[in-house]
């Protein structure tokens, strides 16, 4: 009966992705209850340390989502973030962290359905690879 449920950290920018999550809620779109959302002003605020801390704390996956290119409320925060993630993601994979463990997406304020889809996909991806062991403290 106690089927394993992954816990996933979702770091969402306030202006687009968090608004997308709100829209998914208001539209009563159903998605897996596995994500724990942290709201930040902009994806540009995301320091790779946060993602690694999330993994180390034992989250089975981390999703970071910001505004689509060009939509950033702060003009270019998501471009800065993108460059950072563009290095982080391959590096994590290089050391052997499963590719689906950490994922990035752009979700706009109007994409409630996409938010639900992204969360569903990330949850399924992580369910497939199982509980996080790599980089987890005490694992």
């Amino acid at each position: 009966m106690s089927e394993w449920q992954p816990k996933i950290l979702a770091i969402l920018c306030n202006w687009c992705s968090y608004a997308g999550a709100d829209l998914a809620g208001v539209s009563r779109m159903q998605y897996p209850p596995n994500v724990r959302v942290v709201r930040i002003p902009c994806s540009g605020r995301v320091d790779p340390l946060m993602i690694l801390k999330g993994l180390q704390s034992g989250f089975d996956g981390v999703l970071v989502s910001g505004c689509h290119p060009g939509d950033c409320h702060y003009i270019s925060g998501n471009f800065v973030a993108r460059r950072r993630f563009a290095v982080l993601k391959p590096l994590l994979e290089f050391v052997g962290v499963e590719p689906d463990r950490v994922q990035f997406s752009w979700i706009s304020a109007g994409e409630g359905e996409r938010f639900a889809q992204v969360v569903t996909k990330v949850t399924e991806d992580i369910r497939k690879i199982g509980p996080a062991k790599r980089l987890v403290k005490g694992a």
Binding site: K7, L9, R36, V38, I40, P41, C42, G44, R45, V46, D47, L49, M50, K53, G54, S57, G58, F59, H73, Y74, S76, G77, V80, A81, R84
Partner: peptide, 30 residues
């Protein structure tokens, strides 16, 4: 927006209301 904060490898910058310490506590809370 905090883009500079996350770009500062020296840890010299912080964002009031979304401080590193706060973010750390959130990720560490569960």
């Amino acid at each position: 927006c905090g883009a500079c904060v996350a770009s500062c490898r020296c840890g010299a910058l912080d964002l009031r209301g979304f401080t590193n310490q706060q973010m750390y506590s959130v990720f560490d809370s569960l």
